[in-house]
Amino acid sequence: MKTLADLKKIREKALEDLKLRSGNTRVQIVVGMGTSGIKMGAREVMKTFLEEIAERNLTDVLVTQTAEKRLSSEEPVVEVIEEGKDTVTYGNMTPDKAKKTIVEHIVNGKVVSDYVVQPGD
């Protein structure tokens, strides 16, 4: 059974982690969670990102969600935002595509061009 006491241990470990790096977010993943995104499976896509991040201990990656309308024809839509780089928009995402995006883009820094959609379409 998880208790609040477990959080104390997590906190100690996290503080050590944060000492080793600057503590900044390197990359932000924003999942479109509007009504149409949810209908098309955005919840599972976001859950996959969260699982991968927890599993790989990617402490400098932030996953958030937004209800802002973007490309309703390409839902679920995900944006990858990195400082100093152009924002990349991925469309028609699935849990499998989310896994591949983590490996190729987030970990290895290579945009998965097959999944890229143009914002404003």
Binding site: L7, I10, R11, A14, R56
Partner: peptide, 17 residues
């Protein structure tokens, strides 16, 4: 409990899950 550690820290995600 977490203080300055954010809710989206990987181990915290697992804890909440």
């Amino acid at each position: 409990e977490l203080g300055e550690i954010p809710l989206n820290y990987p181990d915290v995600i697992e804890y909440i899950d």
